[in-house]
Write a protein that binds this DNA or RNA. Structure first.
Lengths: 123, 123, 123, 123
DNA sequence: GTGGTCTAGACCACT
DNA sequence: GTGGTCTAGACCACG
């Protein structure tokens, strides 16, 4: 399972793990009932604390993406990938909205904000 | 002085104060040598701790936007509003970039991200 | 009475007043039973708050350099100017010692500290 | 880590901490990537509030001497010890200058000031 | 009145 | 465990 951690980012590690596993599920690279790597295995692979991986798995389970069976492991739950995409979009939407609001709060014009956005997207 | 605190946001209160005072300075609503409200006055007005306001003022001073005179008050320093605008733009840019990266990390296409952005900006 | 206030200094205004009046007394420019300017007069002359002058006069009186007669004014007390010089020297000595200790605490050699000192004194 | 707090001094505790940690870094007793004691640990050791230690650490970070990683700790940043020495010298210089100015303001001769200085340095 | 420092303890997020 | 933020209130120095 390919997960890439960028610790220089200001995004929490556990959130990076959650995001990427969600995407793997949505893409079909992880299918229903697939077995996720164990907390300890993944923590060694990514060179992060086992507690961090545990937190990511806990998040995934509480959002219904995985099911943990005590003593056996963590499995991908049945999912509606369409719904998942919508959900992820909503998160990005919320982040974009925060950035836009900050810009407006600073009195930056919508045109300027749009220019910035396009510059980053293309750059 | 109109400062609005949104404590439900995940942005620290002191940072919200800093941002908004910077903007007031840039907009010319606060001019050079203007007297900022005292720490205690503003803390009562915003219903936050005096220490929180103080932390905001400390930040503003260390960034050169204000000058504090012991026993007298806090004053707006001479500023280059152009420079300030650039700085604020950079902050928004960073936030936008984080949102875009998150979208890509989730496998959302650039077109979709752009659509989301434009929807929010227009909405 | 010539007193010069330098508000850009990081020395409290009331202390500057105290120091300079002490020196005027020591130099004989202010003699026993001379009448100091009233708090309000001096405050206008120096363009500082009357409370600040009052604080300076209070300090002078508590150290025995002046006597305040209610409804009449403030007078120079009998003083031993030799003693006064010694006292002022002790204050300067304390300040110098603090600076030296700080230098040593930072691991700066005594030679370097001395060089700094002489540079400032001559410069 | 040996840090000594003198609360009878008129120097803020957080500043004493900052000064001494800077010196430890300059002396090489704290090296790049060394882990500073946690805010809470040091606060217990020095018997001061955790906030006071935090303020010291914040100052160190904003001056570029340390790097703080959320949830992990505070680390010594790469530093130019030569530059640091110069900076510390400048601080001592400023303190010496203040003392000298005070002496002059009190009408003490430069020779007398120099004598005082040398007496203290040798004593 | 003003700002400057400090406390003791709380809650949160991250590892 | 770590740091990040916030509170409510205290005492001090300065004007």
């Amino acid at each position: 399972m390919r997960i890439i951690i960028n610790s220089s980012l200001m995004v929490p590690i556990y959130e990076q793990i959650v995001d990427q596993i969600k995407t793997l599920i949505r893409n079909g690279e992880l299918k229903e009932n697939d077995n996720l790597p164990s907390v300890r295995t993944l923590s060694k692979e990514l060179k992060v604390s086992a507690l961090t991986v545990k937190k990511a798995y806990d998040n995934l389970e509480s959002e219904g993406f995985t099911i943990t069976v005590h003593g056996k492991g963590t499995y991908v739950a049945a999912t509606n990938t369409e719904l998942l995409l919508e959900e992820q979009k909503k998160e990005v939407e919320a982040d974009l909205e925060m950035a836009i609001q900050k810009g407006r709060r600073c009195g930056i014009s919508d045109e300027d904000i749009k220019s910035l956005f396009e510059l980053i997207l293309e750059g």
